[in-house]
Amino acid sequence: MTRPGPGTHPRHGLDEVIHAPVRFSVMAALAAADKAEFAFVRDTVEVSDSVLSRQVATLEKAGYVAVTKGYVGKRPRTWLALTADGRATFAAHCDALRAIAGGDVAGG
């Protein structure tokens, strides 16, 4: 039996930043839209404001999520959007998960 060389398993395509369940869920919610309001993402992912804020800060620091603040009327609002790098990283992460689930140990 031939074993794959180092670094060929699809798990090497996983991104440690977005692999955490809440961050992965945030990325998935944002992947479906150009941008989303903070409250919508919070409710979709089913977390508190503080939990979402911490996870978004991590994703923003990694360059995966852009945060925009503004107003709707007199009410402050925060919108979240995936950056181009965030979209590409999320797509690659999902490809790696599919390869692992499908047993594609050669990575492609």
Rank of each mutant, 00 (worst) to 15 (best):
G86N: 01
G103A: 07
L82P: 03
M27F: 10
R11C: 13
M27A: 15
V47Q: 00
F40E: 00
A88I: 03
V105G: 07
G70Q: 10
K35Q: 14
L52G: 10
A99Y: 01
A33Q: 11
T58L: 08
A20D: 15
V45G: 08
D104Q: 13
E60F: 02
R11L: 15
D34E: 13
G13D: 11
Q55E: 15
A101W: 10
L97C: 14
T89V: 15
S53E: 12
V47E: 00
T83F: 05
R98T: 04
L80S: 02
V45D: 04
F40T: 00
S50K: 10
S48L: 04
R54W: 06
P6E: 08
A57C: 02
T68A: 14
L59V: 07
V105I: 14
L52M: 08
H12I: 07
V56K: 04
L52W: 06
A91T: 14
S53Y: 06
V72W: 02
F40S: 00
L59I: 08
V41W: 01
K35V: 03
T68L: 08
P76M: 11
A66W: 03
R54I: 03
G73D: 01
K69Q: 15
G13S: 11
R77F: 02
A62V: 00
F40M: 00
S53M: 04
H19Y: 07
E46N: 11
L59S: 08
D34H: 09
R3K: 12
S53K: 10
E16K: 04
L82Q: 12
K61M: 01
A36R: 14
V56I: 15
A36L: 14
K69D: 15
W79G: 02
T44I: 02
R42L: 05
D95Q: 12
V26T: 08
V65L: 08
G63M: 07
V41R: 01
S53W: 04
A101V: 04
A20E: 15
I100W: 05
V72N: 05
T2A: 13
G7T: 03
H93C: 10
V65Y: 00
V67I: 14
D15M: 06
D95K: 11
V22D: 02
H12C: 09
T44K: 11
M1A: 12
D34T: 09
V67C: 07
A31I: 02
W79N: 08
C94H: 03
S25N: 15
R75N: 11
P4N: 04
L97G: 04
Y64M: 14
W79V: 04
A101R: 14
L14T: 06
A81Q: 14
Y71I: 01
G70V: 09
A96N: 01
A106F: 11
A66I: 08
R77T: 11
P4Y: 06
G63N: 08
L30A: 01
A57T: 07
T58M: 07
Y64R: 07
A106G: 09
